[in-house]
Design a protein around this nucleic acid. Structure first.
Lengths: 186, 186
DNA sequence: CCAGTTAGTTAGCGCTGCTAGATATAGCAC
DNA sequence: GTGCTATATCTAGCAGCGCTAACTAACTGG
């Protein structure tokens, strides 16, 4: 009754292909170009195959891209901070965060803007988001208000990222903004 | 050839009705429930009528809601700040901004999340957004880096608003966050 | 009263996400 | 090998979306 290893492997391989196709498509043509028909064309099968790998349909696929994004972002922030403390740590975390958002706008959009049904800090929060939050939390140590600082810090980074991606922060003052963020949150 | 006053008045009245219907619908059922069919039902006409008032179609209607939102937000921030200076002004502006976003999430979403094709700070920026930006800029006076401070301040408020609206800022620490924002940006 | 403009409608196109039902294929018991 | 069963995949189609061409009714200026 249980699936054979070969079938399982093929299944995971296909899952991989679908997620990659979605991310690539979104990166090139925006999420509006990620349709179930286009996606199934990309992987060389027909639409219903998507639903056998992602029961929740398209939303499920977007969610998968988002969750992988959280993991990657957590890793990159962690790597950037390393053993740094204080102001340098804040600056490194901010830089890593903003660069991730800037270099992978489609993935970032999936993580925060698209209607994937995940919440933060609640009980239902998955390990992926928790990891990302923890990566930032670590920067502010274990003070009483570390949680609140992290939230506002996160919010600032998120705000800069979205406004920047929308072309709403005009002149090229990225360095100045980064410096200011590091200063205000240290 | 020019339209009669009576026709013009009816036209503007209808425009009003469409915008109001869109905002009300979005507030109650989310922007996904704002379809051209539902909208035309609301105003008691058929779909094509929408296009005679908004040539750009649905996107144009959403844009109209967004622009009115910018004006309203600018007014509320202005009113809240009044003649205040320094830290109290920062706090008042932040409070007004966050409350606007919290009380009118659908309008706020139209202003920032939905794909309306408006940019900031560029030449093409409309007077509505300029007004909103100016309302915040006024808080930080005319220092050299007032522009950058305003951008980061704006980003923080925007980040808090979106993360809060998405249920991503868990425990009820709104007051603590507000206090922290006022402190860091004064 | 008629001609011309305009407001409004009906009907339909191409697209979307999604799915029921038919079909082909693969794996296993004998 | 043969026949059965379970699974994988496809065909075809539904309902809803934004939008528009083409027709009709009504109103208005001369």
């Amino acid at each position: 009754m249980t699936k054979q290893p070969k079938q399982r492997a093929r299944g995971e391989e296909r899952r991989r292909a679908i997620i990659d196709a979605a991310r690539t498509r979104a990166a090139n043509g925006g999420w509006s170009s990620v349709t179930t028909r286009a996606l199934s064309d990309d992987i060389g099968f027909t639409q219903p195959v998507l639903y056998s790998h992602f029961a929740g349909g398209k939303a499920d696929i977007v969610l998968a891209v988002a969750l992988e994004g959280f993991v990657q972002m957590a890793n990159e922030v962690d790597a950037a901070v390393g053993a740094l403390k204080g102001a340098p740590a804040v600056r490194a975390a901010a830089k890593a965060y903003l660069e991730f958002a800037r270099l992978q706008p489609a993935v970032y959009e999936a993580m925060f803007s698209l209607p994937i049904g995940v919440e933060f800090g609640t009980e239902s929060t998955g390990p992926e988001q928790r990891a990302a939050f923890s990566a930032l939390l670590a920067v502010f140590g274990d003070g009483d208000d570390a949680g609140v600082v992290t939230e506002v810090f996160w919010s600032t980074l998120h705000g800069v990222s979205t406004l920047d991606a929308a072309g709403r922060l005009p002149y090229d003052a990225r360095e100045a903004r980064l410096a200011m963020i590091a200063e205000r949150f240290s």
